[in-house]
Design a protein around this nucleic acid. Structure first.
Lengths: 338, 338
DNA sequence: CTCTCATATTGCAACGTGGCATGCCACGTT
DNA sequence: AACGTGGCATGCCACGTTGCAATATGAGAG
């Protein structure tokens, strides 16, 4: 165990309180006292005790990141930005995986580690907006991804409908007419897939192109294997397609892998596009066309939003819906002219 | 704020201590008392206060995972396993990124968040074995990756020399004779790259094949971009090669991307192999041959090792070197016969 | 009816910190 | 010389929990 305030105080010949004042930067300390105390602090390598500070002050300096899976590249990259950004707020990030399980999401929502966090940043999958809203007064919460709980909970996201529509338009403009979608998740409350599907259909419909059940493939989860399985189903179904819009890059990479293994040329025979702009997509063969959310901005906005809410617990600001920018990344898998 | 022990005690008409006994499962509590207290606990939704427990008991229930970059797929997957496994020990994982920076590694090694963690699991890059060993009596530490600090610090790893040699032998057996290596990091204290290089050279030398500076490419860091840059250098150098062994899958994916963009056929013209078995490699085009460390075992071993050390702080066990299994994953990028 | 013993419950103290209120001293003013 | 002022330092307490030791209760034996 390291030294505590009392030991520093005894050694410096001052009271515990004075040492505390020095440590916390309280101005009314005589320069020479401050210096003497500081010397003893350095000598004994005193480090403030986080537990005591937390108990006394009610702040732990911890923020929980609650997400389905940290191993997923999108969340991994986001977590990286969040961990970096958290430093500016003197926060440390704590990772909690839900696996997309409703019970686990509920449990973590109610209280991560017995309320020991200052706030939560959560990417909900299985929980409905209603359940997200109906929660006891525990730590402040900021959601990642658009939520229907608009006006009730803070959330930070990109405009999924617009982004999906833009990407679909890009496929149409490049000459594709039979465009399938992979990644619908009707079993999840998380509305992200539904929003991307809406943008996809809007764009097709605006261009007078067909869409319908045979071109829309559900997935259980968002791993590459799910994308691969969906692509297999699509190809086996005999449906005529010249482009596939996958709702995440991981799905797209799995789908593209199967297409290539089956002898299809990407993009000549089949254009493939994804969503998320994960690093893998950039170096895939061919490189993956995708929607690139500004992840750094997403992370920064989530932290700033949470910080504001934590700072004003007595006088809570109204719930905010923060939309961060995205851009289309056109790469070889679905080029401008294909 | 939630209810505390005192409030539960008053309401249940017992002492604070008895409520504590109920909560902690102390056996000497009369069944009906236990039941009555439990009812009040449920009523008030009492949740133990983590800060107070931490202050009183000295255990925070937190374990810091200190690594270069959480967004890197290998570390992301490992973190996923660690977070899952941590639950069995009632631990929560806390993520700290170093970016491979020596100063940052040193700082985190000395004390993450003012000693507020029960232990550290760290993947050092820039710190020398000496510096790792020479540290004050802070939280127990388990290192990921082989370390020269053998006998002084716990570490959990695979046998890098053997794995690299096995992979190189596989390339040789598949008929390759000019085998390059991408991924040496002479500027880092972390000996992993050096170990893989040693295995690579051993296998080449045993087969009577050439190796040397022109076939060994340094990288600054381990991103796909570094692999891509190294491959560009290699191809531009005019060196004759028919296989490339990259010391991580990320490097391999970057390298393979460049090779394919340059019109090389993988594996016909150039076999590419990686190391780590990240999910991207499995679905790359072509799928990446690699060394697959047993990441779940790695995580489990690290946690078990740390748990033992935390449990016996007064009577510390001798430092352990734990080697977990790996296997060769032969895929299309470097098949058996190519 | 008392003594013993096991079971059940309790009060006290302490973990290290920071808010609050107060004490002390020196210095300048009346 | 007495008084007020402001800078500086301090003691006490509470945050919520658990280890320790002590006490209350009831059953069974002598």
């Amino acid at each position: 165990m390291g030294a505590n305030l009392r030991q520093v105080a005894e050694r410096a010949g001052v009271s515990v309180r004075t040492v505390s004042n020095v440590v916390s930067g309280f101005p009314l300390v005589a320069p020479q006292t401050r210096e003497r105390v500081q010397r003893v602090i350095d000598e004994l390598q005193y480090k403030p005790n986080a537990a005591a500070r937390h108990l006394r002050g009610g702040r732990s300096g911890l923020v929980a990141l609650v997400l389905p899976e940290i191993a997923s590249p999108y969340f991994g990259e986001l977590a990286g930005h969040l961990a970096d950004g958290a430093e500016a707020y003197a926060w440390t990030l704590l990772v909690q995986q839900t696996g997309g399980d409703a019970a686990r999401e509920r449990e973590l929502l109610d209280g991560v580690r017995g309320q020991a966090v200052d706030g939560l940043i959560m990417s909900p999958w299985a929980l409905s907006p209603g359940e997200l809203t109906r929660r006891p007064d525990s730590a402040p919460l900021v959601l990642l991804g658009e939520q229907d709980a608009d006006g009730l909970l803070d959330h930070v996201a990109i405009d999924n409908v617009a982004a999906a529509a833009a990407l679909t338009r890009h496929l149409i403009e490049s000459g594709r007419t039979r465009i399938a979608a992979i990644g619908l998740q009707p079993h999840l409350e998380n509305g992200t897939a539904a929003r991307r599907a809406r943008g996809y259909r809007q764009a097709l419909s605006a261009a007078g192109l067909p869409y319908g059940k045979e071109l829309e493939l559900d997935v259980e989860s968002l791993h590459r294997a799910d994308g691969a399985a969906a692509m297999t189903r699509l190809l086996d179904s005999g449906a005529e397609v010249d482009a596939v819009f996958c709702f995440t890059d991981q799905l797209a990479l799995g789908a593209m892998h199967v297409a290539i293994e089956r002898g299809l040329r990407v993009p000549a025979d089949l254009a493939v596009a994804g969503f998320d702009d994960i690093e893998d997509g950039r170096y895939a063969n061919p490189a993956l066309t995708t929607v690139a959310p500004d992840k750094a901005a997403l992370a920064e906005a989530a932290l700033a939003c949470l910080a504001e809410r934590v700072g004003r617990r007595d006088d809570p600001p109204p719930a905010r819906r923060i939309i961060v920018p995205h851009r289309l990344e056109v790469r070889r898998s679905a080029p401008v002219r294909g």
